[in-house]
Amino acid sequence: MSLQLILFVLFGTIAAVSSVLMITRANALISALFLILNFAGLSGLYLTLNAQFIAVTQVIVYAGAIMVLFLFVIMLLKPEHEKYFSHQPKLKIFAFFIAFIVFIQLVFMIFVSHPSQGNNASVAASVKAGTIEEIGKQLYTNYVLPFEAAGYLLLAATIGAIVLAKKKFE
């Protein structure tokens, strides 16, 4: 057992179990906390893949910003007790059945197509691809237009959120 395999099993188990717990808890607040645990596990998985910058960004942006927004809204609304699971049990069985079938299909496709054959970069190339230096260089040269577009998207989202959540005075 190499260290990478041990870390993959550890963080992968955290991510998988917390995602299942996330969709099965009745309380939305507990669900959000499990989603944060899932993001922490994913961040560890990114570290095992030598993607340092993405691992840090995952913690800062997802666990730090987006999930705080979610927790804030959940605590703000505090909805009354109501049935959150669908009251049609047929739909629930159908949903899990479909998800299971598609999962089997995906596993089959992944093993048939042998994705590990073509791409075996050296560890040095993999580490280099994940550094903030390489990503920043790409971001400000080849991808500068999408980067600016992302800035405009965030501006539009900020204005849209303010307009939508603003209290209407008549």
Partner: peptide, 28 residues
């Protein structure tokens, strides 16, 4: 890279389908 790429892809597919099941079954 020591471990096969398939492990990561299967974990990713599992998480995606847990998300799909969550969207279809939850009402909140």
């Amino acid at each position: 890279m020591n471990i096969p790429i398939e492990y990561y892809l299967i974990l990713s597919g599992f998480m995606f389908l847990v998300g799909v099941a969550g969207v279809l079954t939850r009402r909140n």
